[in-house]
Amino acid sequence: MTKLRVAAVGTGNIFRSIHLPAWLANPEAELVAVCDAYKAGAQKIADEHGIKDVYEDYRDVIARDDIDIINVCTPNLYHSEVAIAALQAGKHVFCEKPDAINPAEAVKMAEAAKASGKVLMVMRNNRYRPVSQFLRTYVEKGHMGEVYTGRCGWLRRRGIPGKGGWFTTKELSGGGPLIDLGVHMIDLAVWIMGNPKPVAVSGSVYTKFAGTELSDSVHSSFGSKQENGTFDVEDLATGFIRFENGASLQLEFSWASNVETEGRFVELRGTKAGFSLFNDDLKLFTEIEGTLCNITPQLPKDPGGHKVNINHFVDVVQGRTEPTFTPEQGVDMIKILSAIYESAVSGREVRLD
Rank of each mutant, 00 (worst) to 15 (best):
Y58F: 15
Y58I: 00
R59Y: 12
V61Q: 06
V61F: 11
V61S: 05
I62S: 06
A63E: 15
A63R: 14
A63S: 15
A63W: 12
R64I: 13
R64D: 09
D65Q: 13
D65W: 10
D66Y: 12
D66F: 11
D66H: 13
I67L: 09
I67S: 07
D68G: 11
I69V: 15
I69W: 07
V72Y: 00
V72M: 01
C73R: 06
C73A: 15
T74V: 15
T74D: 07
N76G: 14
L77W: 11
L77S: 10
Y78Q: 03
Y78R: 07
Y78D: 02
H79R: 11
S80R: 13
S80L: 10
S80I: 06
E81T: 13
E81P: 01
A83Q: 05
I84D: 01
I84P: 01
I84M: 00
A85F: 03
A85M: 06
A85C: 05
L87Y: 01
L87A: 04
L87H: 03
L87R: 03
L87T: 09
Q88K: 15
Q88F: 04
Q88G: 15
A89D: 14
G90H: 12
G90M: 09
K91T: 01
K91Q: 07
K91D: 06
H92L: 01
H92S: 03
H92C: 03
V93Y: 00
V93D: 02
F94D: 09
F94W: 15
C95F: 02
C95K: 01
E96L: 02
E96Q: 08
K97M: 08
K97F: 10
K97S: 05
P98W: 09
P98R: 04
P98H: 06
P98E: 09
A100D: 07
I101T: 10
I101H: 01
N102Q: 09
P103H: 05
P103Y: 04
A104P: 04
E105I: 01
A106D: 00
V107W: 13
V107A: 03
V107E: 15
K108E: 07
K108P: 01
K108T: 02
M109P: 02
M109Y: 11
A113I: 03
A113D: 06
